[in-house]
């Protein structure tokens, strides 16, 4: 894909792979390269020794690319179209389904969650998420494109054309921000929510 001057050449291949597999080569694919440093800093703050990662929603995986200290990584992504992209760029990733997996203490050092993916069909239900997020520190993040509406950014990131269900998205966010699940018991864990501001 033709890039503007100054963009890294590797981005072209990534965008082409998105398009070839039927995904929209959108803002996310462009900007993970720009946001890598910010995500890396957030990981270093929350879990500096982390080697075992889980990604809920799949979009966090690019931020792990090139990290020498990743010993294992699992991706929980409901979208079939995303699989080929993940496999082509991140062969070390194990693709998993939340339907048949129960996360346990010690499975992961850090869980990465992209909050934009809450409305997808097949996204993990809030109970599974709540239980799973209690197993390890969580870095939950979203991008902010400058929208005043809390829903609009979710719309913008459904780059595979998946059906958006606002009610599901809201219930998922509610589950993730329900502090009792992460802070109020003896197994209290760290959850950090971060908003990254995009270039657009």
């Amino acid at each position: 894909m033709i890039l503007p001057p100054g963009y890294p050449a590797e981005l072209s291949d990534i965008l082409d792979a998105h398009a070839k597999d039927g995904l929209v080569p959108g803002w996310y694919a462009v900007n993970f390269l720009n946001l890598g440093r910010d995500i890396g800093a957030a990981i270093a703050e929350i879990a500096p020794e982390a080697k075992k990662f889980a990604s809920f929603g799949g979009r966090s995986l690019p931020f792990l690319f090139g990290r020498a200290d990743v010993s294992s990584c699992r991706s929980y992504d409901p979208r079939e179209l995303y699989g080929p992209i993940v496999r082509s760029f991140f062969p070390f990733v194990q693709l998993c389904s939340s339907a048949d997996t129960v996360l346990a203490e010690g499975d992961f050092d850090l869980i990465l969650v992209n909050l934009e993916l809450g409305g997808l069909d097949g996204a993990p239900d809030p109970d599974w998420l709540r239980a799973s997020c209690a197993c390890a520190p969580v870095l939950a993040y979203r991008y902010n494109m400058g929208d005043a509406s809390p829903i609009a950014p979710c719309h913008d990131f459904l780059d595979d054309g998946s059906v958006f269900d606002a009610q599901k998205a809201l219930s998922w966010k509610k589950a993730l921000s329900w502090k009792k699940a992460f802070v109020g018991d003896k197994q209290a864990r760290t959850i950090k929510t971060v908003t990254f501001y995009g270039l657009s």
């Binding site: 894909m1 033709i2 890039l3 503007p4 001057p5 100054g6 963009y7 965008l15 929209v24 080569p25 959108g26 803002w27 694919a29 462009v30 780059d159 270039l199 657009s200």
Partner: peptide, 18 residues
């Protein structure tokens, strides 16, 4: 949306291949 400058832009022209 290729980061070309615009005299009278309709909004951001940051790179957006979508």
């Amino acid at each position: 949306f290729m980061e070309e400058s615009r005299h009278d832009p309709s909004g951001s022209h940051a790179f957006d291949p979508r």
